[in-house]
Amino acid sequence: MNWFLKGVRKGVRTEKTPSDVAPWSTELQFKGIEEESGVTSESLRCPTSAIGPGWIAERCVYCRRCYPHYQPTGNHRMGVVKRVEKRFQRSFYLYPIDVGTCGACNTELRLIASPQHDLTRFGIFFTNTPRHADALIVMGIMTKGMREAFRRAYEAMPEPKLVIALGACAISGGIFQTEKIEADVVIPGCPPSPYTILDALIRAKGGRGW
């Protein structure tokens, strides 16, 4: 009873609109004095060659070496949706698979379930078996031990299905410079903020984003 009353008293804490996003997880933009073509990955010592021409979201690990030439804009909507699956509009079940992360992507992904973000209001849920899943969220660099598990998870999912690559490691190899994983939806960031993740997920199922 105690916790029921506490829950009622505390009230709903879900955000109506995005607010309070950490700057170094958002889009970077050239803010320097010189020409943009003048600064390159080499000149800024970018560890993942994420500069030039322009800023390449997929590769950026937010080391801030390009600061102040490049500065965060606060725009978190960086996800790229290559395939929209409208059939998941109102019911979208995710099976996350960690193929070699540092743990930050895992935590940020779990945090989209926090009351502030609340993925369920968009009809998005986590599931613990690929059989029930509509999308496979893959995070981290592809390690030897997890390659088979990833293949099995993909095989185990019923059609139609989406593959969503989350974080710089999965989509470009990140700081570790390993292979990239082919995916229908790409969510850049190191790690991507819960806002970025939610936005991309909503667009992947045919919504307007978050």
Binding site: R131, A149, R152, E155, P158
Partner: peptide, 11 residues
Amino acid sequence: IRRSEVWNSGA
């Protein structure tokens, strides 16, 4: 129906 091996948490 599509056949696939049993899901044993990736192993």
